[in-house]
Design a protein around this nucleic acid. Structure first.
Lengths: 347, 347
DNA sequence: TTGTATGCGTTATCAA
DNA sequence: TTGATAACGCATACAA
């Protein structure tokens, strides 16, 4: 096999090489690159031909060093195994692509020290801005970055103390519509599955659930909180076991899960224990990831506009980076119930 | 809210600023950064203090421009909605992190023109190397990149014409063990669900299935190919409908799906049509993504070491980038059957 | 052990 | 319309 590599002596061609080949000055080559209208058609064509022949590719590091502005964005994800965040990342990537920007993607996996290490590296890269779903939205190093003049947008979280753009959905409302739906379906005892409390979303979704429960005049004791240690499939399963362990007359007939991973785990446990969904147990998830619709019993879920969240965040970031009179903005999207078989009517 | 930003007049501090603050020369600061052993403890400490006080962060563009070596890798994914590729990406990211490298992640979404646009940008970034699950492993622009001296590793695909490192599993073997398992479970008529043919993996998994089928002396007509237009959940559903439409005596009692997404779609269709899994229809998937184990009927699947694939690919890439006597290598992992409820024994 | 000087590839300013 | 030149921030060879 011809292991054809670049000949040892050959650097990758620079503007200088192009200039020599096209017999123009270096400045003219740069103009062809950056302000082609300033250069006459004939020489421009000559330069372009030389570029093609030499296989010239602009060196972005040099460009960035000189111009002072980078052409990269970064997204620091919270949990790469949750499709929700990957969908958000896709939205960001599409926006970045539109703006001809490259995107660093990092995963903190829920650990603050990894998050900080990533941020460190991104600072060195002089990224134009950072999108982040932080482990802790109030971490001081986020302010530190912002103080450096680097735009930071918080994704799928809001921050009490302000100072940042952020995007997310109205989680309280999401909790309300989920439980309202269950009430409408005739349930009188409902479980809320989710935790830990340190996750703001979980708290707010539960808060919404409690609000609507109270508004319908229900007894708070009939809204049972099944806490979990994380929002994962396996925690959903374990919550299911606890649920199944309750005495029949105390057992909720429906569960609202803080996210779809929990809901899928709960569904699996229920089915494997011989329970029928939704007849014995109705289930509502949150996020509406693709696997919610793909479940054996398609899952009712509170939809977040996942890609749109990413796109919106990227747009806010770019505005902050470019627009001098940018004002921080908390973009809150409205979640939407998507009813499927897992909560079909109890008739 | 105090919109505290960098004071307009303040650039981010450079080595020069640090040098001035620590009252040493610029070269000494650079030495502290790159060969700390060469500088005396006392001045080193002074310099480090100055760095901390000024909040100095090394400018990676300048470093890269001067040193000629970049500290970034890139992975061009084929399909960001498939958790399999995200798991591979995680493996890559972990390896990159170990090497203190940043990672660009791009998604071609199966479209060659997006892939090329991404590669273009990555070339400009002068990435140290590119990992890619290509739309078409034989695309000539991959050679073009390699010829430029940029290491390219092909992930989850192999290339006939060589010239690259690649990682993947033995797909033929994967097909064999999947169908062998079904034969052992007592199935006499089996469906292969997958397509299009342009995907090498699909062809090879089918090939493996046929091999083992023949070796057991079975009639080729009893291995029914249900072609799909993509390896997605919805195509799995539609294959399920076709399967259900077959006359009962011609209908396979088991299906081997080219990947888990297809298998999940098939499972959903079967359950919603009232079929019991595995009693009426046994299902085997491929990849063993997390959602296979999380399905309502946990899915038997042929496991690929997803993260490990990514890690191995990154290691090959780094070797190619650093080791002058690097030799291209096709790393082939052995897939492994993970038996779950979707193929429980027909007793 | 520390300082000085040069250049990486590009953009932008100014003169021709 | 084009050319010459300086500067971006850093690493390194070499001198002190």
């Amino acid at each position: 096999m011809s292991q054809q590599r670049a000949r040892p002596g050959s650097r990758t061609p620079s503007v200088k090489d192009v200039a020599a080949a096209a017999d123009v000055s270096l400045g003219t080559v740069s103009n062809v690159l950056n302000r082609p209208e300033r250069v006459s058609p004939s020489t421009r064509e000559r330069v372009e031909r030389a570029m093609a022949e030499l296989g010239f590719v602009r060196n972005e590091s040099a460009r960035q060093l000189r111009a002072g502005t980078s052409r990269t964005l970064a997204y620091v994800m919270l949990d790469a195994t949750n499709p929700f965040f990957n969908d958000v990342a896709q939205g960001i990537e599409l926006a970045a692509e539109d703006a001809d920007l490259s995107l660093f993607i990092c995963n903190s996996n829920g650990r603050a020290e990894r998050e900080e290490a990533h941020l460190d590296r991104l600072l060195q890269q002089r990224v134009q801005g950072i999108l982040i779903t932080p482990v802790n939205a109030d971490a001081p190093y986020l302010d530190e970055i912002s103080r450096r003049g680097i735009p930071v947008v918080i994704v799928d979280r809001h921050r009490d103390s302000g100072g940042f753009c952020s995007v997310g959905v109205d989680d309280v409302l999401g909790g309300r519509i989920a439980v309202e739906h269950l009430i409408e379906q005739g349930h009188h005892r409902v479980a809320f599955v989710g935790g830990p409390d340190s996750i703001g979303q979980v708290r707010e979704r539960l808060e919404g659930a409690r609000q609507i429960w109270a508004e319908f005049g229900r007894d708070p004791a009939d809204l049972v909180h099944l806490p979990t240690e994380a929002v994962t499939v396996s925690e959903g399963r374990s919550a299911g076991e606890r649920l199944a362990g309750l005495a029949a007359r105390r057992r909720p007939t429906a569960a609202f899960c803080a996210n779809d991973l929990l809901a899928l785990g709960l569904l699996q446990q229920a089915v494997s224990a011989g329970a029928r969904v939704p007849e014995d147990l109705a289930i509502v998830g949150f996020d509406d990831i693709e696997f919610a619709a793909a479940a054996a019993v398609p899952l009712t879920s509170v939809r977040q506009p996942r890609q749109e969240l990413g796109r919106a965040a990227a747009k806010l970031l770019l505005d902050e980076a470019i627009n001098p009179q940018h004002r921080h903005e908390q973009a809150t999207f409205i979640p939407e119930l998507v009813a499927r078989a897992s909560t079909a009517n109890r008739s």
